[in-house]
Amino acid sequence: MRRLRLAESLVACALAAPGLFLLVALFILPVAGVLVIAFTDWQFGAASLNFVGLKNFTEIFADAAFRKALANTMLYTAIVVPGTIVLGLAVALAIESGQTMRAFYRAVHFLPYMATLAAMAITWEALLHPTIGLVNQVLTAAGLPTANWLRDERTVLPVLAIIGIWQNLGFAMVLFLAGLTAIPRDLYDAADVDGIDFWFDRFRLITLPMLGPVLMFVVIVVALHGLEIFDTVQTLTQGGPNHASDVLLYTLYRESFQYLRTGYGAAVTVVFLMIVVALTLIQTRIMDRKVHYQ
């Protein structure tokens, strides 16, 4: 019996070994490495390193450009999350409220989530072109003011956020659709008999609370997507104009790989990691707590 168990352990080790090795080499050690680098003065290509404590962190937080990037990322996320949630939920409710063309609407709204964002960003650039872009042409035709959307400090971040909403809306919609289907029909019948038959009451008293766990989940995941904004900034604005669209990952990329400021880049990476981990922990806490609907 014992030998049998030993044999099973050996087989398990053999099967798990490649994966384990790669997990350690490509995930665990790199994370440890970046944490170490963030607290040293090591520069890319240097032969020696010294621990410098929080120096890299004081440096980045002293840098107005980084603070701007952090604030921009937060602002961007703060627009994308509610925008995506409200629009995604509205679309899901609209699709669910009827029987016709459901698959079509679902597929169409999901399209941006899977299309290559870098390529679509180029199209957005064409749409937003100050003179020949469709957006300004339509606005002019309607007699509304136009702007140089991606070159104006005041508009660039909201415009990027709209692209973010455009991209994430289908993802939120799909999760909401799944959540809506999971609400028992009986509850709506009971609500009808009890007099909850005005659409706003139904939404407020039944649909929204029953979607609660899904809603919290979508908020967190879309927030994570928001924090990870990079492709549109890299393609469309390169952080400009005047750092108005600098975001965390773009700063990380620029400092680490263009300027090779390794310590700075590592510190930015750690800040980014902390934010992501914090959000994920909140998510797990919420998911653990949401059992009272069962």
């Binding site: 028992p184 009971a190 008999v193 009890d194 007099g195 038959d197 609370p209 609660g212 609907y293």
Partner: peptide, 18 residues
């Protein structure tokens, strides 16, 4: 339903879980 002066007990009870 609410104007019919009826009340209903459902097979699944349909209590509002939240």
């Amino acid at each position: 339903p609410k104007r019919r002066d009826v009340a209903m007990v459902f097979q699944s009870y349909a209590l509002y879980p939240h």
